[in-house]
């Protein structure tokens, strides 16, 4: 049986994942980065049965991600908000209690705003992507912080939409 401190830590990790989900849904990048360690790295990957290979669709460290977020307002992009539904499936904390990994299922919907013809499309919600988050944490003084997130997508068909981390 797990002791209370472990259960407590698991709850904190779970909460961190859900907080990240909310921050990302709100495009609140600074709130998200606060949950991340300085060494944080991020990647979106997918396995393609078409070419039989694992692929990296996007990758960057914290510095690169911050740079990217700063650039966002200067670019034309689709502003349809994304809405993530995350369920944490498993959390494994290391024996020394200093790190952990967690696997969550994620489904992301796109709420149409300014696609091709907003007159017709805006307001509609579409399923955008499905996949899993594989997260790694460092735990310092009982506070878990993301050190790595791999968003493992099932999609290989990716239509117009978001250009920031999922």
């Amino acid at each position: 049986m797990k002791d209370n401190s472990m259960l407590d830590l698991e709850r904190k990790i779970e909460k961190t994942i859900y907080k990240a989900t909310l921050a990302l849904d709100e495009n609140n990048w600074s709130a998200w980065f606060e949950l991340c360690d300085e060494t944080f790295t991020y990647a979106i990957t997918s396995f393609s049965p078409e070419i039989n290979k694992k692929m990296t669709y996007f990758s960057g460290d914290k510095k690169e991600l911050i740079g990217l977020m700063d650039m966002l307002p200067k670019h034309n992009t689709d502003h349809s908000p994304l809405h993530r539904h995350t369920s944490v499936y498993s959390i494994d904390i290391s024996d020394d209690g200093k790190s952990a990994t967690a696997v969550s299922s994620v489904t992301i919907y796109q709420n149409m705003l300014d696609g091709i013809n907003s007159h017709l499309d805006s307001g509609e919600s579409r399923l955008f992507v499905i996949g899993k988050y594989v997260d790694e944490f460092s735990i310092v003084n009982g506070v878990p912080r993301f050190t790595n997130r791999e968003t493992k997508l099932d999609n290989r068909r990716l239509d117009k939409g978001s250009h920031w981390p999922l």
Binding site: I44, T56, Y57, F58, S59, L68, M71, L72, K74, H75, N76, T77, L158, S162, H163, W164, P165, L166
Partner: peptide, 19 residues
């Protein structure tokens, strides 16, 4: 190579400035 690829052609690239 993958990094360059994703910057220009990846599905999560940032589109170019202006039309």
């Amino acid at each position: 190579r993958a990094k360059y690829y994703n910057l220009n052609h990846g599905p999560f690239r940032i589109p170019a400035t202006g039309l």
